[in-house]
C-alpha cells in the first residue's frame, strides 16, 4: 500500500473546488460538493479521499465518512464502469420494469448490487423514483436517463455500451 499515491483533486476538480469556495458562506457546505468532485475523478470515494476532503474543507474525517455512508450515490468501493440503475418504484412497476430487471440478469448474469467480472456493469435496484414516471419504465446509467424502455431497447443499449467498453 505504501507505494500507492494518496488521493488529491485532479486539476479540473481543483479548479471547480476553488470556484465553489467562493459561493458558500460556510465551508461545511463544500463537503458534499467535494465528494462529488472525488467521485467524478475516480468513480468512487477511496478511504484516503475522505481524509483529504476533511482536510480541504476543514471538518473532521468522521463527519465526511458519515456523509459518504448516508447518501446512496456515494460509493465506498469501486463499481462497474456503467451503473445500471433500474427504477423499482411504483410507476415503473406498473409499466413493466420487472422485464428490464429480468433482462439485465439474463444478459449479464448479475443480480441487484452485483458487478460483472469484467468490471463493466453494475446493476443497482433504484429504490427512489427517478422522476421519470411519465416515461416509465426508466433507468439511469451513470448521469444519463433512458426512458420509455423495453427489454429490446435495453438489450440494444447494453450491447452498445459493451462495444464502447
Amino acid at each position: 500500500m505504501s507505494t500507492e499515491k494518496t488521493y488529491q483533486f485532479s486539476p479540473h476538480a481543483e479548479a471547480r473546488f476553488k470556484e465553489l469556495e467562493t459561493k458558500f458562506p460556510q465551508r461545511s457546505s463544500l463537503v458534499i460538493w467535494a465528494l462529488h468532485l472525488v467521485q467524478e475523478d475516480v468513480g468512487y470515494i477511496p478511504r484516503d479521499a475522505v481524509d483529504y476532503v476533511a482536510q480541504r474543507v476543514g471538518v473532521a474525517p468522521s463527519w465526511v465518512a458519515g456523509v459518504v455512508s448516508f447518501y446512496s450515490m456515494f460509493h465506498e468501493e469501486p463499481i462497474g464502469k456503467y451503473n445500471l440503475n433500474i427504477c423499482y418504484n411504483a410507476s415503473c412497476y406498473l409499466m413493466g420494469s420487472d422485464k428490464l430487471e429480468e433482462c439485465v440478469t439474463r444478459k449479464l448474469g448479475i443480480k441487484p448490487g452485483e458487478t460483472t467480472p469484467d468490471g463493466l456493469f453494475t446493476y443497482t435496484r433504484q429504490a427512489e423514483c427517478l422522476a421519470a414516471c411519465g416515461k416509465a419504465p426508466a433507468i439511469q446509467v451513470n448521469e444519463e436517463y433512458y426512458e420509455d424502455l423495453t427489454p429490446e431497447k435495453l438489450e440494444a443499449l447494453i450491447d452498445e455500451l459493451k462495444k464502447k467498453g
Partner: peptide, 11 residues
C-alpha cells in the same frame, strides 16, 4: 447571488 448544490441520493 445564486448558486447550485447537488444532493447525493436521499429522498
Amino acid at each position: 447571488h445564486l448558486a447550485t448544490f447537488r444532493g447525493a441520493g436521499a429522498y
